[in-house]
Amino acid sequence: MLKESFLEYLRFEKNYSEKTIVSYGTDLEKFEEYFRGVDEDLDFTKVDADIVRGWMVSLMDDGYTATSVNRKLSSLRSFYRYLLRKKVVASDPVQKVQGPKKKKPLPVFVKEADMNRLLDETDFGEGFEGVRDRMILETFYATGVRLSELIGLKDADVDFSAGLIKVTGKRNKQRLIPFGEELKEDLQAYLSVRDETVSGPCEALFVRKNGKALYSEMVYLLVKRNLAKVVTLKKKSPHVLRHSFATSMLNNHAELESVKELLGHESLTTTEVYTHTTFEELKKVYEQAHPRA
């Protein structure tokens, strides 16, 4: 009866879809099968946290992913919160149970050789839009800025004499990113073409022909279209270029703390994920140095 009343609550009070309700019902049935197998005298009101943890372990042993196990635990949490509100149980056995941690996927990045091929050998066209599109790709790769940060750049944010770009990141936190002579020359060439093409004031550093600022979807699509010319990666986005920047920096012996500051990460833990992608470089060093490699 407890299961049935809970599912009715989801159907009529929460307006959940039938598919979701069936999924919740299946999770509760499987959980009941498990704890009855442990002790046939148990029911939903007598289950404790150890039983829930045991079920979680059995699911992992059966090959369920962390995502699937966490979804099933979410069903249990909703169920026991409902029983608490109805005063059917005095405590929630799922409250102190932590689900398995999901494995973070390694960042997807473009190899240095492919980025060089894109920026040095690809024909973007002579017009304003071709020059601008190449400049956007180069800026992403040379600075590691986020999509929103690039769109928000103004002319005043670029200090050519000091070789610095002022970036406004998450929560309006600002940081300075240095740039080299190549980016300086290319940016100046882009601005020259832009100012000749666009009449009137420009809203941002990177603009459309009408002087209006770019929008996210437009930049995303131009990055995807151009990356497709040199790589077959499934994911081809501005964030992939940010990953490529970080990976190239670490492959070329940059300190992790420095890369963290350049990316604008709050925690070093966030930046550490890029150290996994530099294994290819370590392997290359090993093969060159070890006599039996």
Rank of each mutant, 00 (worst) to 15 (best):
A228G: 03
S216Y: 13
A213N: 06
N251V: 11
K209A: 12
L214N: 06
L205H: 07
M218S: 14
L221N: 15
S248K: 14
C202K: 15
K229E: 10
V193Q: 01
V223S: 00
C202W: 01
L205M: 06
G200A: 02
V193R: 04
N226E: 11
R194F: 00
G211P: 03
F245L: 08
S192D: 04
L205C: 02
L250A: 10
N251R: 11
V230N: 01
L205G: 02
M249K: 10
V219A: 03
G211F: 02
V219R: 04
S237A: 04
V198L: 06
V223N: 00
C202I: 07
H253F: 11
V207S: 07
L183A: 00
F179I: 06
S248T: 15
V219D: 05
M249Q: 12
S199T: 14
M249T: 14
S248Q: 13
N210S: 10
F206H: 05
A204T: 07
L233K: 11
K234N: 12
K212Q: 14
D195N: 15
L241R: 13
S237E: 01
N210A: 05
Y215F: 14
K236Q: 15
S244L: 06
H253Y: 14
K184W: 00
P238G: 06
L214G: 05
E217D: 13
C202A: 10
K236A: 08
E185L: 09
T247F: 03
C202Q: 10
S244N: 12
A213D: 02
Y215E: 10
K209N: 04
L233Q: 07
C202T: 14
I177G: 00
K234H: 12
P238N: 07
K236F: 10
N251Y: 10
R242W: 08
P178N: 01
S237N: 03
N252F: 09
D195G: 11
E217I: 15
V198C: 09
Q188D: 01
F206E: 09
V223E: 00
P201D: 12
T232W: 01
A213P: 00
M218A: 12
V230S: 04
D195M: 07
S248A: 13
L183H: 02
K209S: 09
P178A: 00
V223Y: 00
H239N: 12
L227P: 03
S199Y: 12
K229F: 07
E182Q: 14
F179H: 06
V231W: 06
